[in-house]
Amino acid sequence: MHSDAGGQPHDADLMAAVTELGSALRELVDASVRSTVPAAELRAAAADARTVTARLAAAQRPVTQLPELDDPAVFRRVHNPVTGVGSALAPPLDIRREDGGLVAEATLGPAYEGPPGYVHGGVSSLLMDQLLGSAVLAAGLWGMTAQLELGYHRPVPLVTPLVLRARVVGSRGRRTSAAGSIALATDPERPLVDARGEWVTPRPESVTDYFAAITDVSGQYAPPGRR
Rank of each mutant, 00 (worst) to 15 (best):
H120N: 09
A57I: 00
P81E: 09
T107F: 04
T64I: 00
A106G: 01
V37D: 11
L25C: 04
A24K: 14
R96M: 09
V103A: 13
E105S: 11
G117N: 12
D70W: 09
V37H: 10
V119W: 10
S87L: 06
Q65F: 01
R34F: 02
S32M: 11
T64G: 01
E105D: 13
A54D: 11
A49D: 01
L89F: 09
A88F: 04
Q60A: 02
A57Q: 08
I95V: 10
I95W: 11
V29N: 03
G22M: 04
P38H: 07
R97S: 13
V78S: 04
A46Y: 10
N80D: 07
D99E: 15
G122V: 07
D99Y: 15
V123P: 02
A104P: 09
G122W: 02
A58E: 13
A54H: 11
M128F: 05
A46V: 03
D94A: 15
D129T: 09
A73S: 14
V119K: 13
L28P: 01
G122Q: 02
G121C: 02
E68K: 13
V29W: 00
G86I: 01
T107N: 12
V119Y: 13
A59G: 05
T53P: 00
L66V: 05
P72K: 11
L69F: 06
H120C: 00
A88N: 03
V123K: 10
T83P: 01
G122F: 02
I95P: 00
V123G: 02
A73E: 05
M128T: 02
A39H: 03
L108F: 04
D94Y: 05
R77C: 04
P72W: 04
G122D: 08
L108A: 09
S23W: 07
V74Q: 08
F75I: 05
L126Q: 04
A58Y: 13
G100C: 06
A58P: 10
D30Y: 06
V29C: 01
A24N: 08
N80V: 01
L93W: 06
L89P: 08
V119I: 12
R96W: 13
P110R: 15
L127H: 12
R97Q: 14
R43L: 01
A106W: 03
R96Y: 14
N80W: 02
L89A: 07
L56W: 14
